[in-house]
Every structure is written in structure tokens, then in C-alpha cells.
């Protein structure tokens, strides 16, 4: 077997933007609008499942409704649908455009790998691990599944090291360190790959995302305390407004100074709004929402670029997450207001 299996599963033709982008736009027009979410919010879980089964999620709901019921059915269906959609997207993107799409999809690889490693680290069973995998990503899903079958934590890392993107891994390190490294390398590699397009919207989006990750983690560290050697592990380089030095000084500022300085960035107003709250829950939710809204706004662009595709990738993800928030929230009896506020519409 070819060891570097990455993206070899796809035979991609040339990118035909007029085809790709009209198709993606048509796909995008099939996504739910805000009034549908209002309806969903007023439905019971099984009603939601039925409703989804009457629209775009028909195939998944019908095939999975023999195995699952209720909220499980919904979550499995939407994940399956998301995977299917992304796969379709890559197949129709062609060589040039799929480079970007893959860059986004690699996140699911990272998720899957981290899940496998966590499971192996704490010696969970194969079924337990498989339950946490999502069949989306640049790596073929069969490879991820084969990782589950490998015996130990170190062996899995050794196997991963044979793949080019993961050669930096070190099997002697602990799970938390490996997780951080995977994350940091993901962003580092993408920023390197697209170095030439430093001003492009895509890179801007990624760098905004890095900022948001960093801010979230700084807030967490400020709240829960941190060790100096941990500090560096928890920050990602390459943010749009905040670099590492900025971040580590921010980490140590007293509250007033912190607020004053953060207000100079676009994230300031969000942080200020949630400053007094006891939990970071809603702050994180708002930051996430901000990022998604940014992407939705920014990725509307030239029809002869990758932007419509990226826009769709994000929009589809948002839709799936919205549905999940509604159905899960309904299942665990959250107030409609809380669910509604967390939706990205």
C-alpha cells in the first residue's frame, strides 16, 4: 500500500469554475433559510427528524432510521450528509480548487487522529473510538479506521509518522502535547502553503480563526491559571491582530488593561459584552458565531475564484451545526432562547 495516501483517493480533473461555482451556488440555495430554523425551534425532536427526511437529508434519514431513533438519528444523519456533501464538493472541484477545500477538510483529519490517539492512550475499545470518528477529511477514511485497529498508542504514532504531513510527531510525548502539536502544525502548514496569497480572503479567514482560538485559550488560562511551560503550547502563531508576544503579555495584564488592549481589536466588543459572565460558554459561542459570520460575509466573491466553494463549505457546516444545536438543545430541554441565540443565521 502506498504510504502517502493523502488525496490519492481522488482523481481530479481540471477546475472548471463556471461549472463549479454555479453548481455550488445552486447547492447553497438549497440550504435552510432563517424561517426554517424558526420552525425547527418549534418542533419536537422526532418532528425535526421527519422534517429533515422530507428535504435534503432524505436519503440519510431513511437509511439510518432503522438503526437510530430521535436525536441520535438526526446527529448521525447530518454528519453523514456533511461527509457526503464535502466529498462531492472535492470531486467536482478539480485540482486547483480542491487544494483549498482540502485545506479546510484536514481539520476533520486532525479531529479523527486526535480521537484515535486519545482512545489508544487511555486504552479505550475499538467501538468506543469508532463512535467518535467522522468520515470527512483529506485522509481516506479507511486509513483512519485502520489506525483504530493498530494496537498501541506509540504504534499509531509510528504509523502516522510515515505520512508526510505528520512526520513531526514524537511517540514519546504525551497525548496533550501531541494534540497541541497537531493543531499548531495544521495552521503552520496551511499558512506556508498559501504564503503567496497573504492578502487573500482565505488566509485572512484562517488568521482570524487563529486569533479567535488564541483569545479563547487566553481567556481560559486567565480563568483557570497556567504553568509557564504550558503557555507556549497553547498558542498558535500567525494570528491576524495578535501575535505570540502580544498574547503572552495580554495573558498577564490586569483586567482593566486587558480590556483596554483587546478593545483595539475587532473582538473587543464581543469580549466586553460577555466580560461579567460566570462562564466562558457564551463568550466562546459569540466568538465562534463572529467567525462564521465573517466567513459568510467575506467569502462572497469573484465567481471565477474558489470563494463560492469556501462559502458553501462554511455555510453547510453552519447549517449542520444549527440543526444539531436545535435538536440536541431540544432533547436536553434547553430554553429556546439559548438555542436561538447560538444559531448562526
Amino acid at each position: 500500500m502506498d504510504l502517502n495516501v493523502v488525496s490519492s483517493e481522488y482523481w481530479l480533473g481540471e477546475t472548471n469554475y463556471s461549472y463549479l461555482n454555479t453548481r455550488v451556488r445552486a447547492m447553497e440555495s438549497n440550504l435552510f433559510r432563517s424561517d426554517v430554523y424558526m420552525k425547527l425551534l418549534n418542533m419536537e425532536v422526532s418532528q425535526i427528524a421527519r422534517f429533515l427526511g422530507e428535504g435534503n437529508y432524505k436519503e440519510e434519514i431513511e437509511s439510518l432510521s432503522r438503526e437510530y431513533r430521535g436525536v441520535e438519528l438526526i446527529e448521525h444523519s447530518i454528519n453523514k450528509n456533511l461527509g457526503k456533501t464535502y466529498n462531492k464538493l472535492i470531486k467536482m472541484s478539480g485540482k486547483k480548487a480542491s487544494k483549498y477545500a482540502f485545506a479546510i477538510l484536514t481539520r476533520w483529519d486532525i479531529h479523527n487522529i486526535i480521537s484515535v490517539l486519545r482512545g489508544k492512550y487511555s486504552k479505550a475499545t475499538a467501538e468506543e473510538i469508532e463512535r467518535t470518528l467522522i468520515p470527512i477529511g483529506e485522509l481516506p477514511f479507511s486509513l483512519i479506521q485502520s489506525l483504530v485497529k493498530i494496537y498501541g498508542y506509540e504504534d499509531v504514532i509510528k504509523r502516522l509518522k510515515k505520512i508526510e504531513q505528520f512526520d513531526f510527531l514524537d511517540e514519546t510525548k504525551g497525548i496533550a502535547d501531541i494534540e497541541s502539536e497537531l493543531f499548531k502544525m495544521y495552521y503552520k502548514k496551511i499558512l506556508e502553503t498559501f504564503k503567496k496569497e497573504n492578502k487573500s480572503l482565505f488566509i485572512q479567514f484562517l488568521r482570524t480563526e487563529i486569533d479567535i482560538i488564541n483569545i479563547k485559550n487566553i481567556m481560559r488560562m486567565r480563568r483557570y491559571g497556567f504553568a509557564i511551560e504550558e503557555e507556549e503550547k497553547n498558542m498558535v502563531e500567525g494570528g491576524l491582530f495578535l501575535n505570540i508576544e502580544n498574547l503572552s503579555s495580554l495573558l498577564r495584564e490586569p483586567e482593566k488593561e486587558f480590556l483596554k488592549r483587546i478593545k483595539k481589536t475587532p473582538y473587543g466588543s464581543i469580549i466586553e459584552k460577555h466580560w461579567q459572565e460566570k462562564t466562558l460558554f457564551y463568550l466562546e459561542e459569540s466568538l465562534e458565531k463572529y467567525l462564521m459570520e465573517c466567513a459568510k460575509e467575506q467569502f462572497i466573491g469573484d465567481p471565477f475564484t474558489i470563494m463560492p466553494v469556501l462559502h458553501y463549505i462554511i455555510s453547510k457546516k453552519i447549517e449542520v451545526e444549527n440543526i444539531r444545536k436545535i435538536s440536541r438543545g431540544k432533547a436536553s430541554n434547553l430554553e429556546i432562547k439559548i438555542i436561538e441565540d447560538s444559531l448562526v443565521i
Partner: peptide, 25 residues
């Protein structure tokens, strides 16, 4: 705690939570 879990599952997805739960140290 259950409410928190419910919210976390709603916002992060069951799969993410289950993945974190794999580490019971």
C-alpha cells in the same frame, strides 16, 4: 452538570464530547 453536558453536546456535537471523554485519566 447534566445541563452543561447537554449544552456542550448541543454546541460541540456529541462526537467531539465523546472524543474528549476518551481520556479518562
Amino acid at each position: 452538570a447534566n445541563r452543561y453536558l447537554g449544552m456542550t453536546i448541543a454546541f460541540e456535537g456529541e462526537i467531539n464530547v465523546a472524543s474528549c471523554a476518551l481520556i479518562k485519566k
